[in-house]
Design a protein around this nucleic acid. Structure first.
Lengths: 223, 223
DNA sequence: GGGCCTCATTCTGTCGACAACATACAATCA
DNA sequence: TGATTGTATGTTGTCGACAGAATGAGGCCC
């Protein structure tokens, strides 16, 4: 039997990850207030870890503090989404180019598995989750911690936006799914080829394509 | 007389800004441990606001938590600087293109004043501060909060790196200064022209130029 | 009946205290 | 002497408590 390193996990971290999952999943309506005492009571901890988690979530864009100091779930507007997309148009090409330089075989395997899974996706939530995971692996393979930090914040906010638009359970069209699969396949191949510039260019196209895809899905909310 | 909104400023915010200034200024040696009790005693507050400030500083990259939970001033390596520069190569063009779309007359005035001040810069610290301010205004004029957040973190870390390299008081050559002035002038003009694509391209060149400039100043530390 | 004042509630910001844990050092034993 | 144990100190993670501010309900006066 091999012993593995014991890692102590703080309550604040548990609260943070639980809260971020809950917020992204839509457990709290947009604009609703998160009171520290009530969260602390619900989670069975004191206010201190809750407070620390909220500070972290604020910097990640999953909650915001109003002028009175109350914590609220932000109501993401089209302008917010535009901000996010503008940043992604700058970030994703960098991620792809770094991946082209540093990615290893196991990354490719994971990306292939991800694409295979995407072919079975039924809802927008499935595609979204798999897409986020796909880009997660690309970003991580680039080995740039600061880039990862920036990306993870954007990713969570996109997920939150999907939830707030009530798009999570909308069925996807074959065309949307196929488009995603094709796009990811191309991205994977160019990264595997190891050409940073081509990878960056294609990643930019990928994001731009996704942005253009949005109106078609937002046009019919409540699938 | 016009009344401005009274903003209550929390101790945590004061601690955060004081600490970030102190860290960037080099008051704490690289790698040194920041103990909460001692900081709290020095600042005359309890540990709670100090803790909150440290969490914020960690997400901004000005401190890091080691596995034991101790807070340390990160020792920025060349690899860190490379990470930062890679991100800036992606971020700055976006900032410039947004500025080209949204910047107003007062921004141009401020940028002109900044360039004028740069002509009198004596040390690398001067140039660095003015350069950071120059880009600050460009980023802010783009009206993308998420971009501003990302940028401000990078800016502080670059400042910290300059401090750790003991480059702050190094005299600058006329050539370096002139190069900065010329580059900023060109950037200002292309932003003023309102062409986002050109602005983005030029901003990328600007960052790349600055990166290439670095070896020449790091080659002779301790001016 | 409408506007104003008071009060109760709730929340945040801050504080001091305690337990668990890590680290360094001194003491002990083979 | 060298390894091990015990101890003392310092630090973090967490908790409960309190003051000040904001908010809303309810009563009161005109």
């Amino acid at each position: 039997m091999s012993l593995s390193r014991v890692r102590r996990v703080s309550l604040a971290h548990s609260v943070s990850s639980q809260l971020s999952r809950a917020i992204v999943a839509g457990d709290f309506p947009a604009g609703s207030q998160l009171s520290e005492p009530s969260l602390a009571a619900t989670l069975g901890v004191s206010r201190a870890p809750v407070r620390e988690a909220l500070i972290e979530l604020e910097l990640r864009g999953l909650v915001e503090f109003d002028p009175q100091g109350h914590t609220r779930v932000p109501t993401l507007t089209p302008a917010d989404l535009q901000e996010i997309h503008a940043l992604r148009l700058a970030i994703d090409p960098l991620a792809a180019s770094l991946a082209a330089e540093h990615a290893t075989a196991d990354v490719f395997a994971a990306l292939e598995a991800n694409i295979a899974a995407t072919k079975d996706a039924k809802t927008l939530a499935d595609v979204s989750r798999l897409d986020a995971d796909f880009h997660d692996r690309i970003v991580k393979s680039g080995r740039n911690r600061r880039l990862m930090l920036c990306w993870s914040g954007l990713r969570d906010q996109v997920e939150l936006w999907l939830t707030q638009m009530q798009l999570r359970h909308q069925a996807i069209t074959k065309r949307t799914r196929q488009q995603t699969v094709d796009s990811h396949n191309k991205l994977l191949e160019v990264i595997r080829s190891g050409d940073p510039k081509q990878a960056a260019a294609l990643a930019g196209d990928h994001v731009a394509g996704w942005i253009e895809l949005l109106p078609t899905v937002t046009a019919v909310p409540k699938g």
